[in-house]
Each structure stands twice: as structure tokens, then as C-alpha cells.
């Protein structure tokens, strides 16, 4: 047996053992607090046949629309502001302040402005992702290797050409690092918004179950969120590996 297949076998055994112990506890002691794997699986099947996809669509739309607004705005503003020495110096203290503020604390305000629907969550996701991307590409633009800029300048590159060929790609490293934060954070922000006040979305699934003391419902919703969160993390890691192949070679070579 190869090393990796043995590893996966061990993992499978561990998973089965955990689930079996859980199920046993639920049957022999009480399933009042911990529900049970079988009940959760049944509920999941029931939801999948019912309104799970609808709630997922809602959360997905909020995340997608928010990111579509927040990411490009954040990256662009960060790069432009970061390349101007004066702007960077003038806005620095404000940026530091904003960076220290927990932005999701503004959720109640956004709900007050935009009401119950998807808008406040979209704005929240956009705001959070804008700031995360902004901080990263701002730092990236400040950290551009000036010797690369010199080299291109001597070849006769115009300011615009230097921006496109040096600043943008070297910011990309930081942008990707920002995405690794922004994408999971977008899910968190959307869920927070939905938990605070909402009639739909994955966050709502949790609060709805909690209000009815429906433990099986809570665990099922948590499982769904875990899968969605895991997929988002995995996706960003894959994306990073593809886009930043040269950088991985660099760190491996060291």
C-alpha cells in the first residue's frame, strides 16, 4: 500500500470512528444537544430536496455581487494611491485607522440604511472586500522594486508602460494574498449580515433553526457552511498556485 493511500485510509477510519461515537452517544445517552449524524444526514437530504439551493443562491449572489464591486475598486484605488508619494503620505493615518476598525461592526448601520433584503449584505461584502484589497494593493504598490522601474525607464518605457509592466504584476502578488483574505471574509460578512436580520440565506438557516431550538437544523446548516467555506478556501488556494507559479518557484528555490 502506498503512503498516501494508507494516510487516507487512516483518515477514513478516524472519520467513521468519530461519527460512530457521536451516533452512539446520541442513541445511548441523549440526542437533545448533540443531535446525531443520521438525523443530520436526513435533514440535509430533506433540505437538498427543498429550499437549501434557494438560500445558497441568495448568499452566493450577495457574495458575488459584493466582490464584483469591491475587488476591482479596492485594487485600483490601492495601486493608484500607493504609487503617489504624497497621497500615500497624506492618507496613511486614515488608512491605518480604517484598517484597525472591525468593518463588520457597521452591519447594523447598513441594515438601517438598506433594509432587510440583499442590498445591505452586498454593500457589506463590497465594503469589506474593497478595504482588504485596498490595503493589500496599496502595500504592494509601495513595495514595488524601484530598480525594476529604473530598468524599464532606461529602455524608454513611458510612465504608463512602467505601471502596466512592473507595478501591476508586482502588485498581483499582494492582490492574490488579499484575495486569500477577501474571499473567505466575504462569506463571513454575508453570513453575519444574514444572521443579524434576514429572511433568507445560509446565515438565516442557522438563526431560524436556533430560534426553534432545532439542534439538527443548526448542525446541518453548520455542515453546509463548512462545505461552502472549504470550497472557497480551496478555490483561492488553487487560483493562487496557478497565478503565482513564479513565486512558488522562488520560495522553493531558497
Amino acid at each position: 500500500m502506498t503512503d498516501s493511500s494508507r494516510l487516507w485510509l487512516q483518515r477514513a477510519i478516524l472519520l467513521v470512528a468519530i461519527l460512530a461515537a457521536w451516533e452512539a452517544c446520541a442513541r445511548l445517552v441523549s440526542d437533545r444537544w448533540i443531535s446525531s449524524p443520521v438525523a443530520i444526514a436526513e435533514r440535509l437530504a430533506q433540505w437538498m430536496a427543498g429550499d437549501l439551493w434557494y438560500h445558497m443562491m441568495i448568499t452566493g449572489t450577495e457574495i458575488g455581487a459584493g466582490l464584483a464591486i469591491g475587488i476591482p475598486l479596492g485594487v485600483l484605488t490601492g495601486m493608484l494611491l500607493g504609487r503617489s508619494k504624497r497621497m500615500a503620505a497624506v492618507f496613511r493615518p486614515f488608512i491605518v485607522l480604517m484598517n484597525s476598525l472591525p468593518i463588520v461592526a457597521l452591519t447594523p448601520l447598513l441594515i438601517m440604511w438598506f433594509g432587510l433584503g440583499m442590498q445591505p449584505k452586498i454593500v457589506l461584502v463590497a465594503f469589506v472586500s474593497f478595504l482588504l484589497m485596498f490595503f493589500n494593493s496599496f502595500s504592494g504598490a509601495r513595495a514595488v522594486d524601484e530598480e525594476l522601474m529604473d530598468t524599464l525607464a532606461l529602455m524608454g518605457a513611458s510612465a504608463k508602460e512602467r505601471f502596466v509592466k512592473v507595478v501591476v504584476p508586482s502588485c498581483l502578488t499582494w492582490t492574490i494574498a488579499g484575495l486569500k483574505n477577501a474571499l473567505p471574509y466575504a462569506l463571513i460578512a454575508a453570513v453575519i449580515g444574514e444572521m443579524m436580520l434576514s429572511r433568507n440565506g445560509l446565515g438565516h438557516l442557522i438563526t431560524r433553526s436556533a430560534q426553534q431550538f432545532d439542534m439538527t437544523g443548526i448542525y446541518t446548516a453548520l455542515f453546509v457552511l463548512m462545505v461552502v467555506g472549504g470550497l472557497i478556501n480551496e478555490g483561492t488556494t488553487q487560483l493562487e498556485n496557478r497565478l503565482l507559479r513564479w513565486r512558488h518557484l522562488e520560495t522553493r528555490g531558497r
Binding site: 530598480e147 529604473d150 532606461l154 508602460e161
Partner: peptide, 30 residues
């Protein structure tokens, strides 16, 4: 811009392949 300057530190763009680095001058408008 009339000189070619080879600095002590090689200033290749790390995200470009060797060929793309060497050809970069021909991407510039001038």
C-alpha cells in the same frame, strides 16, 4: 534612454519567463 545599463543586481522581472524578459524592450512603444 540612450544607454543600456546592466546593474550589479540582475533586474529581471520575476514573473516573466526568460524569453519574455529578453523581449520586453520590443513591447515598449518606442
Amino acid at each position: 534612454t540612450r544607454v543600456g545599463y546592466m546593474t550589479q543586481k540582475d533586474t529581471l522581472l520575476p514573473w516573466r519567463s526568460v524569453a519574455d524578459n529578453i523581449g520586453i524592450a520590443f513591447e515598449l512603444r518606442c
